[in-house]
Design a protein around this nucleic acid. Structure first.
Lengths: 353, 353
DNA sequence: TTGAAAGCGCTAACAA
DNA sequence: TTGTTAGCGCTTTCAA
């Protein structure tokens, strides 16, 4: 003969009231315990905890969200780059979420899609997430960031190509580290160094070209126009670029590609042309994907702290989203050059040109 | 001078009441329109729709969930396999979710982790998802499936190694398609064919070995014990297996690896040993990852409909989760052999042994 | 075809 | 330190 309605015996959900009854306190006290609020006598707290344990009670997230006007979910917006990149971003975000009991909502989309801003604003309007993380190249989609600012949707940008002082963002030292890799090649004795640029929509990748050019200028080395090949981030575009570069009358002795996929394409083409790697051609990539170990010679690359950047961004968002817009701070997490076997001194005959 | 309280002007959330007021109907009628329920006069419906549009109203998912006892989220449990695999599973699940307004909750975990069942049951108890999808090898983690069955958490298994008639599941024809690839190799003239097995925790990958052995038996070809190398799904384990197999006094003329990563490792080692591919050695993989196009010679493989399987599983879960446990049906989505350049007739000298 | 009332299971604001 | 009362914004039930 319990005092609650008959439905209780029907396995209807266990609620905070059941816990309160068993612990002989009010539901507010149970709420205090659940949320680790102060001002609960230790003895009372223990009694409540014991009741929770005995009943195997799990507070409803949905009810909590409705009452608190927080959904404890952050959105992740991405445009289909490599599975490896997404995987690492997700891992970082999940790490930040896990610690705080947040969930992650995925939203793949397309860079150019004009409806994306509306979609995201709608998801937020429906209370499907508290704030959103934008990964490249979406972190540079102005129509989107403008809509988010206007509709007051909290957001943090990951590795934007263009930084605004008004936005919260997590960056890396792209330009500087590309310059460092370039100096590494120059230091090995290379003089004719070509670059395979990334997808033009991807502003952050554009910065990589800038870093390369400035380092070459500093080294006093010319970069003829035909030494900069436009790639599109894919393996195949790397192959195409390599065919062009290696077919030049005066081919480069080193090729630096703006990502590992394209660098792997370069390696494949070079080998198919019978070029002896790394003696006759050095190749460098960017991203430090597992691929670096799977090609021969093992690819020198730049290690980007993708997961850590994503974790940082998610933490910023979670901290802020509860209390309003995200403060427009800039966090920097540096990348580093990783030298492997694919970069070596040039063979005599081509180097002393 | 509106009739609502002053908070409305303070940008407090727009609610169903605002819509009802503007459309001059009750909130129940608005609810009917939102949920596409019948029994609303067309004229009334239009009036409500217009009010929704004018106000730019977006119903709160959280409130809807609390009232309807459905959260419109499905969970995806996975154990860190390849980014490529996960990416495709997610893509399939998202496709199914999108159409029905569901969201996806990610939950990476570890196969052996004894706390996983408790974690999942807790997430469900907190109403963080309606049901969950298990990917290999977790679809074969008995402690987990047992807990889900007992706690009545709706679930669907993707590609389990062992199938129970009691569970809802989406499978592919692993054994049959492996047998087909094996017959392809036999048909090319290979007699000495070795197999690199997958990770032992991964029961579904174990079935691949069975398919290979049965096809070899049918072809009347022996498979000496040393022709079956244990791999662990990684590129490096493929390299190790290849070193063993190719170092045998009587090495195979074809190596079939249980996934593409390992097959790529085999190719790398073979080339480093100066073996002429595919003339002196045929190699086949499984999964048809992008890697197949990035190695030379391009890798023959088995295309698994990962995304479609995941989409199917998610659809089953969504259809059922509203009304109870998922009916224990079995769905089959077949895989197919994809022949590329890495499989070719064996060179004379080794074939006629 | 439409609506009124009663929750869903919590937290917030305030009182004791 | 603890409790009471009102919601949060919807759906459900039942009545009209």
């Amino acid at each position: 003969m319990t005092e609650s309605n008959g439905a209780a015996s029907h396995r209807s959900r266990l609620t905070i009231e059941d816990v309160a009854a068993l612990a002989r306190v009010s539901i507010k006290t149970v709420s205090r315990v659940i949320n680790d609020e102060p001002n609960v006598k230790q003895e009372t707290r223990d009694r409540v905890l014991e009741a929770i344990r005995r009943l195997d009670y799990r507070p409803s997230r949905v009810a909590r969200s409705l009452a608190s006007r927080q959904v404890f979910v952050i959105g992740l917006l991405y445009d289909n780059p490599s599975p490896y990149y997404i995987y690492n971003v997700q891992a970082g975000v999940l790490k930040a979420c896990e610690q705080r009991g947040y969930d992650l909502l995925l939203h793949p989309t397309t860079f150019g899609n004009a409806r994306t801003p509306e979609e995201i604003v709608t998801l937020h309007g429906q209370s499907r997430f508290d704030g959103v993380l934008l990964t490249p190249p979406l972190s540079d989609m102005e129509a989107l960031t403008a809509a988010l600012r206007e509709q007051r949707v909290p957001f943090v940008l990951i590795a934007p190509g263009v930084e605004l002082e008004t936005d919260a963002r997590v960056c890396t030292n792209d330009e500087a580290v590309v310059a460092e890799m370039t100096r590494h090649l120059v230091g090995l004795g290379h003089r004719r160094i070509a670059f395979v640029a990334g997808h033009p929509d991807h502003l952050a990748v554009g910065k990589r070209l800038a870093g390369f050019l400035s380092a070459m200028r500093e080294a006093g080395l010319p970069v003829p126009a035909e030494y900069v090949a436009q790639g599109y981030n894919s393996f195949e575009s790397g192959e195409a670029a390599a065919r062009r570069l290696l077919g030049l009358p005066n081919p480069p002795t080193a090729i630096f590609a703006a990502n590992d996929e394209m660098a792997a394409g370069v390696i494949k083409v070079a080998r198919s042309l019978g070029i002896d790697l790394p003696r006759e051609l050095s190749v460098a990539g960017f991203d430090d994907t597992p691929m670096t170990a799977q090609v021969w010679p093992a690819l020198s690359s730049v290690r980007q702290p993708i997961a850590r950047m994503a974790e940082m961004a998610a933490s910023m968002l979670i901290e802020a989203a509860a209390s309003g817009p995200v403060p427009p701070t800039r966090q920097l997490i540096p990348s580093e050059v990783v030298v492997r076997e694919s970069t070596a001194p040039p063979a005599r005959s081509s180097a002393d040109h």
